[in-house]
Amino acid sequence: MTKIMVVDDHPMWREGVARDLAEAGYDVIATAGEGAQAIRVGGSLKPEVMVLDLQLPDMSGVDVIKGVMAAHPNVRILVLSASAEHQDVLEAVKAGALGYLVKSAGHDEFLEAVRRTAEGDAVFTAGLAGLVLGEYRRLAAAPVSSGSENPRLTDRETEILRLVAKGLSYRQIADRLVLSHRTVQNHVQNTLGKLQLHNRVELVRYAIEQGLDDTPSNS
């Protein structure tokens, strides 16, 4: 049974989601209402999937994702949010979340998203595809930071991401482009992977620029 942790500061919502997941056959090993608690518990219990609300009272959703990923890198995070604050969602996905769903999504849609997250597949709604597409376009127009090139989409990836953003299912996309369902899935996954990699490289570079160079050496 897949081990799941639910993080949400709204008790009613938290219980509802946990109950739905348990009914669907998942093992809900823990729930948490605060970010710090989520990082602590998540780090020690190591759930396979974490369903995370972006609005927590004590810290930002992106920081929670970073904290949890640092303590338990193999966790698969599905972001569930009441708000569609674009920048927050994009940052969450860049920080390593596998997918994003608004809370108004239906019951079946939610369970399907959890299932795919558990399998390690990116969960792309049209809204998220639009954000990722926009981010690549922004990076393409932005000046290249020294040392590394900004990530780019291949023509195929752009084509597929646009179709996702226009609401086509992977199945419909596969039919339209005469590809296998798996191939479409891989392309979508790649777009996210490149963005997350770029984000990590940027973070490391930032850390080096800000701190490591100035660290006095012990030798």
Partner: peptide, 20 residues
């Protein structure tokens, strides 16, 4: 334009917008 188009969001209309 994101704000202008924001008015159309509904359960039956999903918007896909950039973050900037």
């Amino acid at each position: 334009l994101r704000e202008t188009l924001g008015q159309f969001a509904s359960p039956l209309v999903e918007l896909a917008l950039p973050a900037t």
